[in-house]
Amino acid sequence: MTDPVFFHARNRLTVADIVELTGAEPVPGLSLDLSVERVAPLDHAGEGDLSFLENPHYLPMLETSKAAVILISPKFVDRAPKNAPLLVAREPYRAFAQIGMALFPDAARPQSFFGAKGISPGAVVHPEARLEIGVTVDPGAVIGPRAEIGAGTIVGANAVIGPDVRIGRDCSISPNAVIQHSLIGNRVIIHAGACLGQDGFGFSMGPRGHLKVPQVGRVVVQDDVEIGACTTIDRGANRDTIIGEGTKIDNQVQIAHNVMVGRHCVLVSKVGISGSTVLEDFVVMGGASATVGHIRIGMGAQIAGAANVKDDVPPGARMGGTPAQPLGDYARELALLKKLVKSSRVRSGQGTDGGSTA
């Protein structure tokens, strides 16, 4: 639920405001003048709180929820108590996000820890750096020569922006992030501790030792990308590492040199992408999944958590397991393996829980 210490609503929203913002439809009898100023889950919501229901797992909470307004999927309306304060939305969670953004815009991206605009006296900005009017630089941040940063961007405490780096407008660079050899678009969010543009892991290996290969490419991050805390994105070896428009990357993800990630991809925590792999648009990779290098994952493909991909993946495919295979095949393989183990235990005189049947 909304924390009263860390997050403060900019204003209140009436049901009429929400209808205009999201296109949701109020049930008959719901006052358009009713207002909300906070958000909360169904079981903790009270007066002035907005909540939502999209997952059937939370249907039991609907019976006792005290939320002022509840966004609900059309398929659950008949399951709601009589006179419940419902707003019917085709995508309740998306509508909830729109309302949350209107109430708490500062929560949508990292803010200056010091709440001050402009360049802090404690920051180090090289005289050859070029910052547009409206850039905020917190204490301890270092901005190198010839770096360029657009208006509305926030550079957090102790962040390091290397020489010649370009960062667009309305970005947030969180504390302790390090950006070098990179071109960053507009409205990009880079969370704390992320590192972009360091050496790719490139060596010519052999019996005489491993000779380092100079990495002379860049990292190119397009507009509206979000990069999670402690994620690393290596610069290219002989071409650019590219992160496409609108892609969302979770914490602790590793993206190697020369990787090309398409538009609107989703990479969940601990994903590892080896060098020169291509992800086409709208690819989703679940947590702790990984790829070998030099393969292509087709548009809209989905890789299950902990899967390891060693071959090209066709567009729209759903893959799981190690090595990754079509998800249906993987599920049947697990089911068969479970049957074989159970059968083996019975033949050996053990129970299904591993204990003796004697």
Rank of each mutant, 00 (worst) to 15 (best):
P105A: 04
D78P: 01
V292A: 06
Q222A: 15
Q302T: 13
P175S: 03
A301H: 10
G286I: 04
N308K: 02
G316Q: 09
S172Q: 00
K338I: 09
G349Q: 02
I189F: 09
F76S: 01
I295P: 13
N258V: 03
P56C: 02
D78C: 05
L103T: 13
V39M: 14
A16V: 05
I303W: 10
I249P: 04
Q215T: 01
G275M: 09
D106F: 08
E37T: 13
V15W: 00
S344T: 12
H181C: 11
A68M: 09
L71T: 05
K212P: 06
H191Y: 13
A67S: 06
G193L: 11
M319N: 06
S35E: 08
Q302D: 00
R239K: 15
V5L: 14
L87M: 14
T241L: 09
G48L: 10
T232L: 11
D223R: 13
L34V: 14
D199L: 08
V268Y: 02
G100T: 12
R109Q: 06
H44Q: 15
K212N: 03
G100Y: 00
Q325R: 15
V5W: 08
L50A: 04
H44G: 06
G118M: 14
V125W: 02
I233R: 07
V219P: 09
T241G: 06
V271N: 04
I99K: 09
V292M: 10
P127N: 06
G140T: 14
I143T: 03
R90K: 15
V259F: 01
G46E: 10
V39S: 05
V15F: 01
G193I: 08
A108V: 03
V39A: 04
G293L: 10
L131P: 12
L336Q: 07
A24D: 02
R90T: 12
P4F: 12
V278M: 05
S356H: 07
T247D: 00
A192Y: 04
R239A: 13
P92A: 12
S35I: 09
L337P: 04
R235V: 07
N158W: 12
D49N: 12
G217C: 12
Q98M: 15
A159I: 07
V313P: 15
V160F: 10
G100H: 08
R94P: 03
